[in-house]
């Protein structure tokens, strides 16, 4: 019995002493933090995806509170959450433009391939060693490195080309870094018209390896009334800020390399039809 009491007393004593030490430590080494940081962090998704460019949601919240920079954007939480976050820190903010990633290539079965690559199945592996079966030196390789990099399952490989599901995309930018051919860029969600090609080669060269590439014919430049097309030699790019989506360029493009971005389900369906048709033939 005595033993039990002594043991109990000893353990209790140690617990008490440790408690006091902890108490002192917590008072003495307490870090003063702006309570707003916690409030802002609560608005964030907490996935620590790094899409904002900060180490995690906590450090992003700190940046919002400390810098009060309205350019900061959590691509996952979106504009609404950002608006309320900035309201918390005392700023009037109505939100900026929602952006999505878009793959500037629609090659796939439309482009010529020669040879047959066997090896590590990733785009960067093929690109680094120059072991590429796609003849086009700019197009989508189709091994899905961006798909693997996407934390939101917003990229799918359809017909050998990566396609972004605009509704699932949060513009975190992971796929942009993953693509070894720099084919993915962020564009405003509302602007659906884009040139799905990044080949700056002359028309004659492009036609050799792709039936849907931009051949640099300048018809779109002539068709556009709003000067919304940036023409570098043999490649057009649409300037989203100026584009009014009048569709004039889409209609004029002889290789159909200017596209209206469709929901992913429609693209999938159309490709399936195509496969179906060719199978019937």
């Amino acid at each position: 019995m005595n033993l039990v009491i002594i043991t109990g007393a000893c353990m209790g004593g140690i617990a008490f002493l440790s408690g006091i030490v902890l108490l002192i430590a917590s008072k003495k080494f307490a870090v003063q933090e702006n309570p707003l940081i916690d409030d802002v962090e609560a608005l964030l998704p907490g996935a620590n995806c790094g899409g904002c460019g900060y180490a995690g949601c906590r450090s992003f919240a700190e940046a919002v509170v400390n810098t009060k920079n309205t350019d900061l954007l959590c691509p996952v939480a979106g504009q609404k959450a950002m608006a309320s976050a900035f309201r918390l820190v005392g700023l009037d903010f109505s939100g900026s433009v929602r952006k999505v990633a878009r793959v500037m290539c629609q090659g796939g079965s439309n482009s010529v391939r020669s040879g047959q690559y066997q090896g590590i199945a990733s785009c960067s592996a093929a690109q680094i060693a120059n072991l590429i079966d796609l003849v086009c030196p700019y197009g989508c390789l189709g091994y899905g490195e961006c798909m693997a990099a996407c934390p939101f399952d917003a990229i799918r490989m359809i017909d050998g080309v990566a396609v972004v599901d605009a509704d699932a995309c949060t513009a975190c930018g992971k796929c942009i870094k993953a693509c070894p051919r720099n084919l993915i860029s962020l564009v405003p969600y509302d602007k659906k018209v884009f040139v799905a090609c990044k080949s700056p080669e002359s028309g004659a060269a492009v036609k050799k390896y792709c039936s849907v590439g931009c051949i640099g014919c300048k018809l779109c430049v002539k068709a556009c009334q709003f000067e919304a097309i940036d023409y570098q030699p043999f490649l057009s790019t649409i300037i989203p800020e100026k584009c009014t989506q009048c569709m004039a360029c889409v209609e004029k493009c002889p290789t159909r390399s200017i596209l209206i971005n469709k929901p992913i389900s429609e693209i999938e369906a159309s490709k399936e039809n195509k496969v179906h048709e060719t199978a019937n033939v």
Binding site: G115, Q116, Y117, G119, L131
Partner: peptide, 8 residues
């Protein structure tokens, strides 16, 4: 047949 390309 089409040629195979592999890494060295």
């Amino acid at each position: 047949k089409s040629l195979v390309i592999t890494s060295s």
